[in-house]
Simulated assay, not measured.
Amino acid sequence: MDAYTAGAVVTTSETLPRVVYADDHRMVAEGIERLLDGICELVAITQDGPGLLDSIREKRPDLILSDVNMPGGSGLDVLKTLRAEGDRTPFVFLTMHAEPALAATAMRAGANGYVLKVSAGEELLTALRHVFAGSTYVTPSLGTHYLHADTLGMQELTPKQLEVLRLVGAGMRSRHIADRLGLSVRTVEAHKYTIMQILDVHTTLELVRRAEDLGLLF
């Protein structure tokens, strides 16, 4: 497991909730570690999907805090694996992805919270309080839109995401799509990743077939 070890969280209380945290951005992780100091006991911090799954199985935390997009498998993949195994450990996403449809996908998959990194800080603590109290929490700036994303369809994707999806469906590679739309390759890949999460697929072939089934390529 390619992970870095969490700095010791000083605590003399055995009542602090034990948390496993996953984020491949070291500076973000260090900031969250400082934020949670004295509030939660971070028993592991990892940088990727496989490492997160290993840490959860080893540490048996009270709560899981995870980014969505990580190397080796997304946080969403880890959540789905846990829920399929019957593991109901509270799971909160802390992410840069502000798409209501992705928040809806995460909550339908069994997440207990969805917090944007730009809102992190006091809001993350609010989200954790809600989740520890048995409730759920979604960043208010997403509004109630995610509640209306219960059926997959064109309205869940932004116009730019639909453009990217249709060009993927036409067989174009990310570099050519980037040139066509005046975007960076990284931005195109980010759009493609988000679309795949929303449509619950893992390969480009599955993405195209799913989009065809939903009538999104016409």
Rank of each mutant, 00 (worst) to 15 (best):
M1C: 14
A3I: 12
Y4Q: 13
G7R: 14
G7S: 15
A8Y: 09
T11W: 10
T11A: 15
T12W: 07
T15M: 11
L16Y: 01
V19M: 06
H25I: 10
G31V: 10
G31K: 07
R34M: 15
R34W: 12
L35K: 08
L36W: 11
E41F: 05
L42S: 08
L42G: 13
I45A: 09
I45K: 11
Q47D: 11
G49E: 12
G49N: 11
G49K: 08
D54V: 08
S55D: 08
R57W: 07
K59Y: 05
R60E: 13
I64F: 04
I64S: 03
V68F: 03
G73N: 08
V78G: 02
V78R: 02
L79Y: 03
L79F: 02
K80F: 03
T81Y: 07
L82N: 07
R83F: 01
R83G: 01
A84G: 07
A84C: 08
D87I: 01
R88P: 09
R88V: 11
L94W: 04
T95R: 05
A98I: 08
E99Q: 06
E99S: 05
A101G: 04
L102H: 11
A104P: 01
A104Q: 00
A106W: 00
A106R: 02
M107A: 04
A111R: 01
G113C: 12
V115S: 09
V115A: 03
L116P: 08
S119I: 14
A120C: 09
E123N: 12
T126E: 14
G134F: 02
G134I: 02
S135N: 13
S141P: 07
H145S: 14
D150L: 07
T151Y: 11
T151W: 10
L152N: 05
M154N: 12
E156S: 09
E156T: 14
L157S: 02
L157C: 03
P159N: 01
P159M: 04
K160P: 04
K160Q: 10
K160A: 11
L165E: 00
V168R: 13
V168N: 05
V168A: 04
A170P: 12
G171R: 12
M172C: 08
R173T: 00
R175F: 07
H176D: 15
A178L: 05
D179C: 04
R180A: 09
R186T: 15
T187I: 02
K192Q: 12
Y193C: 09
Y193R: 15
Y193M: 15
I195Q: 13
I198S: 00
I198G: 01
L199G: 00
V201F: 14
H202C: 02
H202T: 05
T203K: 05
L207V: 03
L207K: 06
L207F: 06
R209T: 15
R209C: 14
E212N: 03
D213L: 14
L216K: 06
